[in-house]
Amino acid sequence: MAESPYHPPRNLPPGGSVDSWVRAQVTPFAVFIGLTLLLQLFTTYFGWKHPSAPWWRNWPEQWLYPLQTIVGLVLVIRWWKYYEFRWSLKWSLIGAVFGAVGIGFWLLPTIMYERLGLSGEAEGWLKWLGLAEREKGFNPAEAFGAGTPAYWAALVMRFLRAVVVVALVEEIFWRSFLMRFVKDWEGDYWKRPFGEASWKSYAIVTLLFMLAHGKVDYAGAFVYGSLTYLLCIWSRNLSACVVMHAVANLLMGLFAVIHGKYGLW
């Protein structure tokens, strides 16, 4: 009896393997998180908050974030053929609207913090709701001086990281891989179509998305993650989710820089 012709599983490009598909979905995110942990370790053991400290020890994020950006882009480009991007003007515009609404909810607690006349470090339920001033964070002006060439280079790389790399790396992992994996982890999850509705996938992925952020961002991350899930199952379009994330991070970055809320990013 002649053997049946081999048909590659759904979602794999010609000549692609399941192992390569999994690596493409997971590796960029894992490396990105690994570099974030490296920043924490470097800050703990080699960082030096002192006027005499060189900038790379006083503000290690100023060199590690660009490194994350470059490495993330290289990895995504390396496995580009494994990603199911279906760019569409309609879904890109809808994704942009979702991103603006989602980040609006994320920023609302910080705005309310000032409107309510609160001050100081948020504690207890205020922190869980995200009511904090969010002024301490990534600020290249502290390291290089406002308006200098190094300042603008750092700021451009920070926006490239947030708007392009984070949007791609996270949506590929959370929506393209993890939603499928959670829904059918004992089966051929890579064959499942993108954006299948599942309460289990929604609950687990949204919870993990929240836990990937600080407590002060839990409320915003829950609302944002829920809206992204809704867009995902409605559009069945990974590109729409990437656009949503990119627009949200762009607006957050602009808000942080304009209003001095550097702790937001």
Rank of each mutant, 00 (worst) to 15 (best):
A153V: 05
W128Y: 12
T206W: 04
D184S: 11
V216L: 07
S20N: 07
L160I: 08
R134N: 05
V257D: 14
A154G: 15
H7I: 13
P109N: 10
W185A: 10
F222S: 03
L230I: 15
L251D: 12
W190L: 12
L73H: 04
A240Q: 03
P9W: 11
L12H: 10
M1S: 07
R134E: 05
F209Q: 11
L227Y: 09
F255V: 04
S235A: 15
V71W: 00
K127L: 09
L251I: 14
M112E: 08
L116S: 09
W152P: 11
A248F: 07
K215S: 04
L238C: 06
W128N: 06
L67D: 00
N249T: 02
I33R: 03
I33C: 04
I94M: 03
K90H: 14
G260W: 06
A246W: 05
I258G: 00
G99Y: 09
R57K: 14
V242L: 11
Q25P: 01
F173D: 07
R86D: 15
K127H: 08
A240W: 13
F46T: 00
S239F: 15
I258M: 05
S176H: 14
W80A: 08
A141F: 07
S92F: 06
A122T: 10
F177V: 13
E121I: 11
T69F: 08
S88V: 06
G253C: 05
A219M: 15
L254P: 09
